[in-house]
Write a protein that binds this DNA or RNA. Sequence first.
DNA 1: TGGAAACATGATAACCACATGACCTTATGG
DNA 2: CCATAAGGTCATGTGGTTATCATGTTTCCA
Lengths: 147, 147
Amino acid sequence: MPVLSQTSEYALQATVVLARQSDMVEVGVLAEALGVPKNYLSKTLSQLARSGVLESVRGKHGGFRLARPADEIPLLAVVEPFERFTENRRCLMGRPLCSEEDACAAHESWRAIGGKIVRFFRQTTVGDLARGRSRWPNSTELGGEKG
Amino acid sequence: MPVLSQTSEYALQATVVLARQSDMVEVGVLAEALGVPKNYLSKTLSQLARSGVLESVRGKHGGFRLARPADEIPLLAVVEPFERFTENRRCLMGRPLCSEEDACAAHESWRAIGGKIVRFFRQTTVGDLARGRSRWPNSTELGGEKG
DNA sequence: TGGAAACATGATAACCACATGACCTTATGG
DNA sequence: CCATAAGGTCATGTGGTTATCATGTTTCCA
């Protein structure tokens, strides 16, 4: 499963690095550290700056930095500009055989999964990604549903 | 979220029609019923025949038919030839910052969601899709089946 | 004030998977 | 053997993602 585009992955990786750094980092440094094309990353980070996730400073000694504490940035915010999560959630079959009104028997459980994904991206923060797994509590928090 | 490719949707739609039909159906008929290109659907169904989901008969009076009862065909079987579910499940960030051994704090909960998706495709059957929501417990409305 | 450093941005190309079409081959039944 | 329908091959289209190029704009500093 792809789930996230390359661009979104770049965005996540970059924000995690920034979460650990605390001071301004230039695109060139980030790009080299992550092994991704600099010009492209530049555009990606610009978008994140525009959407309020990052702060950017131009000119000499410029660079990027998180606009807020890492724990206050949900992954959804990082990824949203590059994905369409709010897309028309049609049935997994597509339109013809299954609509909202006349739904297939699997409709609801599929919807539930979609909800879980979105909730994950809303509840998980950049800070979580930046931390090692040691930090993470017993698995009652998010996975807590029967399967 | 896309989640499934167009091809997979074609496959699901076609199998659902076949689930309701019980006798052989030609590609041409299926293609027209679903409003999809015949040649393409032909290829898709061939793959499903090869993978054992469908049975095909060539020549006059040929066509396609489910190889097993609809309730014994998990969606995974229909969709697997066209997606890579078993893909290397790396972290949603990609490789560099988060591996299996040194995982981010969100690693496990993300994995859990991946598991849920796969489980859904394993547990839900073509039969479920073919049935209306009337089969569903918490539905107050009993609609007949028709598409 | 000029130049270098760094982000910002628009245009364009490269790439790629998905999708489609045209056409030929093979099997089947009558 | 002939019509039919699946199976396969080759070539092409097509849209979206990713990457590159060129240039503009802001800022710092000497």
